[in-house]
Design a protein around this nucleic acid. Structure first.
Length: 425
RNA sequence: GGAAGGAUGCCGGAGUGGUUGAACGGCCAGUUCUCGAAAAGCUUGGGAGAUUAUGUCUCACGGGGGUUCGAAUCCCCCUCCUUCCGCCA
């Protein structure tokens, strides 16, 4: 959520942001019209309430002096009340409309974000690691995994539907190893480890900016909770409604949770393998910083670097992309995606996504802090993937495949997995 | 699922119809004292909206509605929390 004053002063900027993010532009003008109506009604209602309060004080005086109020003042009070009852409902409607529209206004992208309609507009910032060469034709992860009895999608689909999977044998340990390694890296960096609830309420979804735009992308329960697509939701909302002190910042959290995504609108994409699934596991980093864009940008780079460290430790090649306006979320101010090299597919695929929001999320969630100068400000929030499996597992398998179809286990994971090579049984 | 209790400011915690927007304590900020700090004292200071004056007004005691000239306080509905019982893991 943006500051209404900012929207009033920068209507064009906000409208351009809507347009560039491929969102409805008309909400801005609609909001400002409602804002004006609301303010006009507010002035009227405030004036009447002032009179009502003054009258009540006068009644109090009379009671103190004469023991009982005069009929005139009681009648006047009733009259004011009648007038108030006539316009208060209008104000209430205007306020409700105002709130709904405020929640529908996206964040304005940072200056350096390229304008673009879709992924074509994204810009490669850096490419790290050489694309590995094979003296044989590298296979895709699902071929390799099926041959080694590491995955079963045929039976899974029978049980859980399209995009379901069983991981089996060493793949289970290898997945856990990746997640545990990711957790360990960030814990060493001073992040507080969490498991996060994935069944969350509407406020948390709206507060993090997934709603109202992404309602269709999420599953919900018959009790009204939503199955979150990421631990970002619960972790970012962790201090919802609280006021911290500046000394508490930065707050650094790393959470592990299952993630659920409906993947509507992706029919026909990645139908093979376990790159795109409805349920996966993820280690996610979330940080609150002071209300300073320079500081939050520093953290944005740092958090991206943490994810890059993981990929380097795993010996994977990747590229970092600066996402264009059309390919970023409504609440995001700037976003990097990291794409990891998949030799079997012969291309880079998205494995990480790092965003910062300034106070867009914290305004919605009501997360503030008392600054050193005594004023109260909203914290700035950021998040980044640390490791998402089985997608990252698939990357490891494709990159570590051998001519005989076996998989070498990355060195840093060997202790956990208990073997240095996965071979046919 | 049944029963009881609870939700108050930045935090803890009083308060059962009108000088309580909130005692008391803590924290933070500002300020006085000081070479400086600590300690101590003082402050219309600490949330939101309107007006755009930097003063006034309104709202804000979990959320919504009602009673009343007047509600944190009385009534109704809802949400959440705690405890006990039941059930389950």
């Amino acid at each position: 959520m943006l500051d209404i004053q900012f929207i009033r002063d920068n209507q064009k900027t906000v409208e351009t942001a809507c347009k560039n993010k491929q969102l409805d532009v008309s909400v801005v003008a609609e909001l400002l019209a409602v804002d004006e109506r609301r303010r006009k009604l507010q002035v009227e209602v405030d004036g009447l309430r002032q009179r009502a309060n003054q009258n009540a004080d006068a009644v109090k005086q009379e009671v103190a002096q004469q023991g009982k109020p005069s009929v005139e003042l009681i009648a006047k009070g009733k009259d004011i009340k009648t007038q108030l009852q006539a316009i208060e409902p209008e104000l209430k409607i205007a306020e409700e409309d105002f709130t709904t529209l405020m929640y529908s206004i996206p964040n304005v992208p940072a200056e350096e974000v390229p304008v673009g309609e879709d992924e074509e507009g994204n810009v490669v910032v850096r490419t790290v690691g050489d694309v590995p060469t094979f003296d044989f034709e590298p296979k895709q992860h699902h071929e390799l995994m099926e041959a080694l009895d590491l995955v079963d999608t045929v039976r899974a689909v029978r049980i859980g539907g399209f995009r379901s999977y069983f991981l089996k044998n060493e793949a289970v340990l290898l997945e856990q190893a990746i997640l545990a390694y990711a957790m360990k890296l960030l814990t060493k960096e001073g992040f507080t480890p969490f498991t996060a609830p994935i069944l969350v309420n509407h406020d948390a979804m709206e507060g993090t900016g997934y709603f109202p735009w992404g309602v269709e992308d999420h599953y919900k329960t018959q009790d009204g909770q939503i199955l979150a697509g990421t631990a970002e939701v619960a972790l970012t909302a962790y201090r919802m409604g609280e006021t911290l002190t500046e000394a508490d910042l930065p707050v650094k959290m790393v959470g592990i949770s299952p993630c659920f995504r409906r993947e509507v609108g992706t029919h026909g994409k990645d139908t093979q393998g376990i790159i795109r699934v409805h349920q996966f596991n993820k280690v996610e980093q979330v940080v609150y910083t002071v209300a300073d864009e320079e500081e939050t940008q520093k953290w944005h780079e740092k958090m991206t670097a943490f994810a890059e460290q993981l990929l380097k430790d795993l010996g994977l090649s990747y590229q970092v992309l600066l996402m264009c306006t059309g390919d970023m979320g409504a609440g995001q101010r700037k976003k990097y995606d990291i794409e990891t090299w998949f030799p079997g597919q012969n291309k880079y695929r998205e494995t990480h996504s790092a965003s910062y929001f300034n106070d867009f999320q914290s305004r919605r969630l009501g997360i503030k802090y008392q600054a050193k100068d005594g004023t109260t400000k909203h914290v700035y929030t950021l998040n980044n993937t640390m490791a998402a499996t089985p997608r990252l597992l698939a990357a490891v398998i494709e990159n570590y495949q051998q001519a005989d179809g076996s998989i070498v286990v990355p060195e840093v994971l060997r202790d956990f997995v208990g073997t240095d090579r996965i071979t046919k049984k």
